[in-house]
Simulated assay, not measured.
Amino acid sequence: MTRVSRNQSFKKRMLKKCHYMDCQGGSVVGMMGSLSDCATCNGLGLVDADTGEALPERDVIRQLLMRFEEQRLRIHQMKQYQEELQRRLEGYERGR
């Protein structure tokens, strides 16, 4: 049995909000105000942007984790850039 690496077998997909008009983040208000999971998105509030179909919960979690890691990296890069600009500013102010 060969095992495929997670990074190779899983690619980033576009997600979009569930298109069902009564879906509010994965929940649908039923009769008498009861809440139930949306059947269109399996209660997750997100569907595949290309097909409009619900993804398995595990796949949605992976997709969200991928986005989280990308944003975390961007924040780290922005902090480094901010620190570099601060050092430059301090050097400029000392040179006056």
Rank of each mutant, 00 (worst) to 15 (best):
S5R: 11
M14W: 02
C18L: 03
L64A: 11
L64G: 08
K16Q: 14
C18E: 01
K11A: 10
R58C: 04
D37L: 00
M1H: 10
K16N: 08
C41P: 08
M31S: 12
G43M: 00
I75G: 04
L65G: 14
V60M: 02
C18V: 06
H19P: 15
E93K: 08
G25T: 15
N42V: 00
H76W: 04
R3K: 12
Q80L: 10
T40H: 03
G91M: 10
V4H: 06
V28D: 07
Q63V: 05
G25S: 14
R6D: 11
Q8T: 15
G91W: 04
Q82S: 15
R13I: 05
R88G: 09
R58K: 08
V29N: 12
L55E: 01
G45M: 04
D59R: 02
G52H: 05
C18Y: 00
M31I: 11
G91H: 06
A49E: 15
L44E: 01
D50W: 01
S27D: 11
L46N: 06
E84A: 14
L44V: 06
L89P: 00
N42C: 05
Q86C: 08
A54T: 02
G43S: 07
K11T: 13
C18F: 00
K12E: 12
L85C: 14
T51G: 08
Q63R: 03
D59H: 01
Q82P: 01
L85W: 07
G25N: 14
V4M: 09
R6A: 13
Q82H: 11
K17C: 11
G25D: 15
R6W: 06
V4W: 02
S9H: 04
R67A: 12
R67M: 08
H76N: 13
S9L: 03
E53F: 03
S9P: 02
E57R: 06
G26E: 03
R62N: 09
L44N: 01
L44P: 00
G95A: 13
R74C: 09
K12R: 11
R6M: 09
K12D: 11
V4P: 06
D48H: 06
K16W: 01
K79F: 06
T51W: 03
V47H: 00
M78C: 14
R58W: 01
Y92Q: 15
Q8V: 14
L15A: 03
Q80D: 15
Q24R: 13
M14P: 03
S36N: 10
V29W: 07
D48F: 01
Q8A: 15
Q71P: 10
V4S: 12
T2G: 05
Q82Y: 07
L55P: 01
R96C: 14
R6Q: 12
D48K: 02
A54G: 05
Q8D: 15
R96T: 15
H19Y: 08
M1G: 12
D48L: 02
L64W: 03
G52C: 07
V4C: 07
R58N: 07
R13T: 05
D37F: 00
S5Y: 06
L55C: 04
